[in-house]
Design a protein around this nucleic acid. Structure first.
Length: 941
DNA sequence: GTCTTATCCTAA
DNA sequence: TTAGTTAGGATAAGAC
């Protein structure tokens, strides 16, 4: 044995025989004996498994053969919770006399920071399912905090060198509205702040020590903040180590367990790849809001500022590292300024958690799937299915084999019906299969336990099993009901129940809980199919997943045929119905009810909705229960651009539309600039809602003209793309990758990392330069006044998306001639960049302020010919200067208002705020204009 | 020029 | 030690 720090004298505690059955495949002669091996510690399981697998162990009376391991790869927490029937975030009761309170009399010293310490046997407590009274949520204490560091100029703070100068904290009880503690720890003095406690320390190590004391005193159940896991907590622990603050890292509830930082790489198809730190804080859950948002929301930017604006319609100051240092080195007022900012950053995560109902939704997910809360942020989708599968398997004496993952061939997925592209002025009905994949699995009893191997099939009666469209075989429900269908039925019926309860419930908090629950149930049901198809997973079964998709393909085809064969003139209907599009579980039907000339949309919509409902019912009748086709909505009008790309007005009632629905087009994609997204959105609104295509064309022309004359704000031109691989893994050159690489050279600390989204703009360069050479950091562009390649934005960003939405309406030729030709496409001359890689090719020469002619004598403001009109030109420039000054003052005040004080300088440099870009641009223009004016000052001819 | 490939992001 | 699925459009780079 290599090490034995736990002092284990006996690794194997017990070996027994249990009668079980493998979950995988249908076996006629059900249960067989299994060896159940009990190990002393979780970490001894893997080596024991390896020994048995390789067949080197001689088990008395069973011999030394190679054993197939089962359930040796189950996480310890999951194992314990499954065995004791605990689900995440639920209540347990320690019955009287079953536990013993630890006190001075019977225990040498406490091992935890808990108020009460007891000993209880693992199987002598009661676990309550979270129903009724036990669905209540405990009043958790939640600590939200934010730190500020004093970095050096242009370098991202490093804990080995740069001090922590402030730590702001907010503590709230779950369910309450306001924090009951608001404070800020500051290094050096800080002027008082109304409503917050200010705790100032002259020494950094003292501040850190006191903060750790504070955390232990507050004793939070949940620790939150923004990017705390990968930044704040990590920084504090490393900083405390640098300063040798010994008691600092004991932040959890186990007294002698120090918090340690571990690096881990989390990668999934859903979330991409990202480097994460893991810090143990026993008894306290780290619930980093950034990680929640990355999982649950697709956003263009994930800075706290962008997120606050998106969800709370509120900006926050974004202060650069170098400025933070200046504020710290100022006086107690400038430090107060910083503290106010820091407090806000501690408060915002709490407000966002509340607004997005993260805690409740995550708790419900933990309850529904049975996993601990912390797993939901640190692990993937699979563990949730495994947890449910294990619980169900236990009921039926089934065991799950250990599967060695290997990549195999892909299987065929869903059908996308070839779209009949075009602009539909007639109402289009949409019919959907609700919960298609779960329904298929239930209807056809698809499960691990019902999968019929070929040999077994030969012994079976043909009416005892089915053959799926992908030629796989499963036994019927009458022979044996699968446990996946059972799990799914439970999830779907629980969801129905939650939705019904939600309707009846009046208490707002319970309403939130129920809504979170129905959402969790829906997501869980839908992820079971994905689990069976995950080849690099715990228990893939392609027979199930490919049967599911094959049934789905068959069903969508059949639906199309059924609708078109019934709803036609031959059968006495007014028109021939046509399925114009469909994807996976839906069909879009044009029943041919025309756009009424009278303008009475309501009547036409009523007719289509009625037809849709009847047709859905008719089609449902052709499929096995619980498969059901439902009428969902009508699109009117409907613009079908391509597969997975369309837009339309969404009606669920005949009177008014619910929303404008856009799928797959630029308005919902994050990899184009806001200019394009907003332009397309506006045009679609004008076309679909106002039904004014010519108005849309005019609008588009105006925007194009604005762009070419540089009247468009730079924030509108920022494109963002995710860095999905490391530098050397990329084989093709790309704009955002190249830029990230260049930024790493400028300042490695603040450059984008793996998994981050990289914002960039395309700058002007000589003709034919590849786009990946023209990408640049928007802030850098702004600070150095680098010209934008407006032609690129017209040709490579705007034009194609615009043509795609206008062509079906105007026709190909007309769309092109209207939009991309004419006066509005005239460009203002683009100047070459004065900095960066291309600066070498430009030579700066002064021009005449009057006529822009090159000057012989560069010291003069104007040329000889313009000389007589010098006062006039001077006047003009002064007018412009005044205009710019006024504009700058206006933007400045706006920013002051945002930061909440009209008496202080604006420090914000938020890359997500359009005002910031404008303010910065005007500031630059102002400086340039002042330079121009100054040229008048020294006439010398 | 055209065609293929890599990449991103979305639909369901 | 960990990772839900396939279909598919759009774009830019790079081969030819």
């Amino acid at each position: 044995m290599r090490s034995n720090k736990d002092g284990i004298t006996q690794a194997v505690l017990a070996v027994g025989v249990v009668i079980k059955e493998s979950i995988y495949g249908y076996h006629v002669n059900r249960k067989v004996p299994f060896l159940k091996i009990t190990m002393a510690l979780p970490r001894l399981i893997a080596p024991a498994k390896r020994l048995l697998e390789t067949g080197v162990v001689n088990v008395p009376s069973y011999g030394s053969r190679a054993y197939q391991p089962y359930e040796s790869n189950i996480d310890f927490e999951i194992r314990f919770m499954v065995d004791t029937g605990i689900v995440g975030c639920s209540w347990i009761e320690l019955p009287p006399k079953k536990y013993q309170v630890r006190s001075k009399d019977n225990a040498p010293s406490p091992i935890s920071r808990c108020q009460i310490e007891v000993d209880v046997a693992w199987d002598s407590f009661i676990s309550y399912p979270p129903e009724g009274e036990w669905a209540k949520v405990a009043p958790f204490r939640i600590l939200s905090f934010d730190i500020e560091c004093a970095g050096r100029k242009g370098i991202f703070p490093e804990p080995e060198k740069d001090p922590v100068i402030q730590i702001a904290n907010m503590v709230i009880r779950q369910g309450e509205k306001d924090p009951f503690i608001r404070n800020v720890f500051t290094l050096n003095s800080c002027a008082p702040i109304v409503g917050s406690q200010v705790l100032s320390y002259m020494k950094e190590n003292q501040m850190l020590e006191k903060w750790a004391d504070f955390v232990r005193e507050v004793d939070p159940d949940i620790i939150t903040g923004y990017n705390i896991q990968n930044f704040d907590i990590t920084y504090l622990i490393n900083r405390a180590k640098t300063l040798n603050v010994k008691p600092f890292p004991f932040l959890g509830r186990v007294i002698n367990r120090a918090s340690v930082i571990k690096n881990s790489m989390i990668q999934s198809k859903q979330m991409g790849r990202r480097e994460n730190k893991f810090i143990n804080t026993e008894g306290r859950i780290q619930f980093d809001l950034l990680l929640v948002l990355l999982r649950d929301y697709k956003l263009r930017s994930y800075t706290l500022n962008a997120v606050s604006f998106h969800f709370l319609q509120e900006q926050k100051e974004d202060v650069q590292h170098s400025i933070i240092t200046d504020l710290q080195n100022g006086n107690e007022q400038t430090r107060r300024r910083l503290a106010v900012y820091c407090l806000k950053d501690a408060m915002l995560p709490l407000r966002l958690l509340d607004k997005l109902m993260c805690i409740i939704n995550y708790m419900e997910m933990a309850r529904v799937t049975g996993v601990p809360l912390s797993y939901l942020l640190s692990r993937g989708q699979q563990i949730k299915v495994v947890s449910q599968l294990l619980r169900k398997a236990k009921e039926h004496d089934l065991v799950i084999p250990v599967h060695n993952p290997e990549q195999g061939d892909d299987f065929t997925g869903a059908t996308v019906i070839e779209p009949v592209k075009g602009y539909y002025k007639d109402p289009i009905a949409t019919l959907d299969f609700s919960s298609l994949y779960p329904s298929i699995m239930i209807a056809h009893n698809l499960c691990y336990t019902t999968l019929l191997p070929n040999q077994t099939r030969n012994q079976m009666n043909p009416d005892e099993f089915i053959k799926t469209p992908s030629d796989n075989y499963f036994v019927k429900k009458s022979v044996r009901k699968g446990i996946l269908p059972e799990i799914l039925e439970n999830l779907l019926s629980a969801r129905k129940r939650a939705k019904e309860d939600l309707k009846k419930e009046t208490d707002p908090l319970r309403k939130k809980v129920l809504d979170g629950r129905q959402l969790a149930l829906k997501i869980s049901a839908n992820s079971v199919y994905g689990f069976t198809g995950a080849q690099v997973g715990k228990l893939p079964c392609l027979e199930i997943s490919q049967s599911v998709t094959a049934f789905g393909r068959m069903m969508i085809e059949k639906t199309k045929t059924l609708v078109e064969e019934k709803y036609n003139i031959a059968n006495g209907y007014a028109q021939n119905a046509k399925v114009i599009y469909g994807d996976t579980d839906s069909v879009m039907v044009n029943f041919g009810i025309p756009f009424p000339p009278s303008g009475d949309h309501v009547e036409a919509l009523k007719q289509v909705m009625e037809l849709g409902k009847v047709a859905a019912e008719y089609v449902s009748g052709h499929f096995t229960s619980p498969i059901k086709l439902e009428f969902e909505k009508v699109y009117f009008p409907y613009l079908l651009i391509n597969k997975k790309r369309y837009a339309g007005l969404y009606y669920t009632k005949p009177e008014t539309h619910d929303k404008m629905d856009c799928k797959g087009i630029e308005t919902v994609r994050r990899d184009n600039c806001p200019l394009v997204a907003n332009l397309i959105n506006m045009c679609l609104q004008k076309i679909l809602i106002e039904r004014d295509p010519s108005g849309a064309v005019e609008y588009a022309k105006q925007i194009i003209s604005d762009l070419l004359c540089s009247r468009v704000d730079i924030s509108q031109l920022v494109i963002t793309k995710e860095l999905t691989k490391t530098d050397d893994e990329y084989s093709a050159k790309q704009a955002h990758v190249e830029l990230a690489h260049r930024m790493k050279k400028r300042d490695p600390g603040s450059a984008p990392n793996l998994g981050d989204r990289v914002p960039y703009v395309i700058i002007a360069a000589s003709k034919g330069t590849a786009a990946y050479l023209k990408s640049e950091d928007p802030i850098f562009v702004l600070e150095n006044n680098i010209p934008i390649d407006t032609q690129y934005y017209l040709e490579n960003q705007i034009s194609k998306p615009l043509l795609r939405i206008f062509e079906p309406i105007l026709g190909e030729d007309k769309a092109k001639s209207c939009l991309l030709k004419g006066d509005h496409t005239r460009t203002k001359t683009v100047v070459m960049s004065k900095v960066g890689a291309l600066a070498a090719f430009t030579k700066k020469r002064a021009t005449c302020i009057g006529c822009k002619a090159l000057l012989d004598n560069e010291k003069n403001p104007i040329c000889k010919h313009c000389k007589p009109r010098e006062p006039e030109f001077y006047q003009n420039e002064m007018v412009q200067l005044n205009a710019l000054e006024e504009k700058f003052a206006r933007l400045w005040t706006q920013c002051q208002r945002c930061q909440g004080s009209l008496h202080e300088d604006v420090l914000c440099t938020s890359r997500d705020c359009p005002i910031f870009y404008m303010r910065k641009k005007v500031q630059k223009d102002l400086a340039d204009q002042e330079k121009v004016i100054s040229r008048f000052g020294i006439p010398s001819w």
